[in-house]
């Protein structure tokens, strides 16, 4: 994939590409199958994080396609801005709010999925037939405007013909940054708790010590293992709610390994006793 990328860049990316037609065809089909299957997986997978990763696959294959189509600048912008910045922003927000909130499978409008799918297929047929009638020809020969190269040509266009939209874009970006700051800002409605308040709340709650960390007194100290209290019982408070929810989603018993641990401990104890007994017998004579 990288070699195609560099190959497409090698000619300065003017107009068309100097890709071998067969090479370009093979790459197109590989990337097209990859992009479409990843896009389908994106709208069908339930986990939000998996959706974001599938979207990354689509965006990266589109980036390679841009390079193949003689748009090396856009290919890099796609990788840096879309896959790098926008998708990371998505992942941040998913981690902040959505990682435990699964997409519910219950339909609020009955038959919505079916009708949405049908409408989508109809829309696809409409567009494909329309574009099929348009009889799109082969790529136009490279004009003189592009001979200086993709970057120079783009820069000339952006700073001459499209200079006003470009300036307005900067205003849009500043507005967006301000808007995000205003929207994400939270007014404090109650006074900030002082150290004294926090101490009082701790004493009143009856638990002065911090929450037990996961895996205490258990055989494993993984984050998904509930802590075992000195009396042998386990406590759910030591495990993040997201981890428990994930166990439930995957059909695992969140307490499952604890019982296995207890059984293992009993077995080890009995083996130790047997060994001690054997050693005792051996020493006796």
């Amino acid at each position: 994939m990288t070699s195609v990328f560099l190959h497409a860049l090698a000619n300065g990316g003017a107009g068309g590409t100097n890709l071998d037609p067969l090479y370009g065809k093979v790459m197109f089909w590989i990337l097209a199958v990859l992009a479409v299957s990843a896009a389908l997986a994106m709208i069908l997978v339930r986990q939000a994080v998996h959706c974001a990763l599938m979207l990354a696959v689509v965006m990266l294959s589109l980036a390679v396609m841009y390079a193949m189509e003689g748009a090396p600048f856009l290919a890099f912008v796609q990788v840096i801005v879309y896959t790098g910045a926008v998708l990371m922003l998505f992942l941040f927000v998913v981690m902040l709010i959505g990682v435990t909130s699964m997409d519910s499978l219950t339909e609020t409008i009955s038959g919505q999925r079916l009708w949405a799918g049908l409408a989508g297929v109809g829309f696809a047929v409409l567009l494909v037939v329309g574009i099929g009638h348009a009889a799109i020809g082969t790529a136009a020969p490279v004009t003189s405007a592009q001979n200086t190269g993709n970057l120079t040509g783009l820069a000339k266009l952006i700073f001459t013909t499209y200079v006003y939209p470009f300036e307005i874009t900067s205003a849009l970006l500043i507005t967006a940054a301000l808007g995000a700051m205003v929207l994400a800002h939270r007014e404090r409605t109650s006074p900030k708790p002082t150290q004294r308040d926090i101490a009082r709340r701790k004493i009143e709650s009856g638990q002065v010590a911090p929450e037990p960390p996961p895996g205490v007194y258990a055989l494993h100290n993984a984050v998904d293992m509930p802590a075992m209290l000195p009396d042998g019982s386990t406590t759910d408070r030591s495990v993040s709610a997201a981890v428990v929810q994930r166990d439930v989603q995957l059909g695992r018993d969140p307490q499952g390994r604890i019982t296995a641990d207890l059984a293992a401990e009993a077995r080890i104890e009995s083996e130790r006793q047997i060994e001690a007994g054997a050693a005792g017998k051996g020493e006796a004579p």
Binding site: G15, G16, E69, G70, A71, F73, L74, I136, G137, A139, A140, P141, V142, T143, A145, Q146, N150, G153, L154, L157, I158, T161, Y162
Partner: peptide
Amino acid sequence: RLHGNLDGQV
């Protein structure tokens, strides 16, 4: 690419 100019890329 079809039209052989850069406006679409902009």
